[in-house]
């Protein structure tokens, strides 16, 4: 077992670097989760209220993303994105070499993966909204957007919250895969540190602890949000 001082914040310590990498993990996860939320909402909407073509497309999207390994999707965005950027760049007359940021590729790829499962969660939450409340909103003359904002979204959010917490947890863990693009987040940084110091176990363990801290803290946040969202509900038990 190596020198635990390597993890400190001193001049020889990797503490600060790892802390920054942890923030990067958080940043790429939040960006990807929001990407997935937008995509998931659109896809859930297409599956619930879309026409036949939209429904089929949305269903195909969820089936494909559920069945393909996440790392392939990330490679596809990273290498494929580079190909696309290079093609556009050459067409516009710029000189190479072209590259795509690991952050953007990772955010889009994980957003796309997460969007597929978030859409399922959101669809289920929408279907749990009592029909009567939607009809009531329509009767009092609400437009589609107002109805969504004031009747559907507040109720669906409460139902979706616990499952969304799980989605967030998987996004954090998937964000480790973005390290293959060279983005310096936790996974990448601990690999570099492990290689440099030859203290592999120590640094991978430290990385694991960083992920555990992030997942545990965000679990607490989601629990708080859940409790808050249940205010005023009968039998909520709080």
């Amino acid at each position: 077992m190596g020198d635990i001082g390597l993890l400190g914040f001193g001049p020889d310590g990797w503490g600060l670097v790892l802390f920054r990498a942890g923030l990067m993990t958080l940043a790429v996860s939040v960006a990807a989760f929001l990407c997935g939320l937008v995509l998931g909402t659109l896809v859930a909407w297409a599956r619930v209220g879309g026409n036949r073509v939209m429904r089929a497309l949305a269903e195909a999207y969820t089936v494909v993303l559920r069945g393909v390994p996440d790392i392939l999707v990330i490679y596809l965005f990273y290498f494929g994105g580079r190909q696309v950027v290079a093609a556009i760049g050459t067409a516009l007359g710029f000189a190479g070499p072209f590259d795509i940021s690991g952050f953007v590729a990772g955010m889009l790829a994980i957003g796309l993966i997460s969007g597929a499962s978030q859409s399922e969660v959101l669809r289920g939450a929408y279907q749990a909204v009592p029909r009567g409340t939607i009809e009531a909103g329509r009767v009092v003359g609400m437009g589609r957007f107002t109805l969504f904002r004031r009747v559907i979204a507040p109720q669906a959010m409460v139902t979706a919250l616990p499952a969304m917490g799980n989605q967030w947890q998987s996004v954090i863990k998937e964000s480790a895969l973005v390290s293959v693009t060279g983005l310096v987040e936790t996974m990448r940084q601990v690999s570099v540190a492990a290689g440099t110091t030859q203290e592999h176990f120590l640094f991978y363990a430290a990385g694991a602890v960083i992920y555990l801290i992030i997942t545990t803290l965000s679990d607490q946040v989601f629990r708080l949000a859940e409790r808050r969202s249940l205010r005023g509900h009968q039998g909520a038990g709080y």
Binding site: M1, K173, L177, M187, Q198, Y204, A205
Partner: peptide, 23 residues
């Protein structure tokens, strides 16, 4: 369950493959 579900699989793989050899 807490440890293995709270950390990415990639780090678990690396920990076993690279990490254990250090002992």
């Amino acid at each position: 369950v807490f440890v293995f579900r709270g950390t990415p699989l990639l780090i678990q793989i690396f920990m076993i493959y690279y990490g254990l050899a250090g002992f």
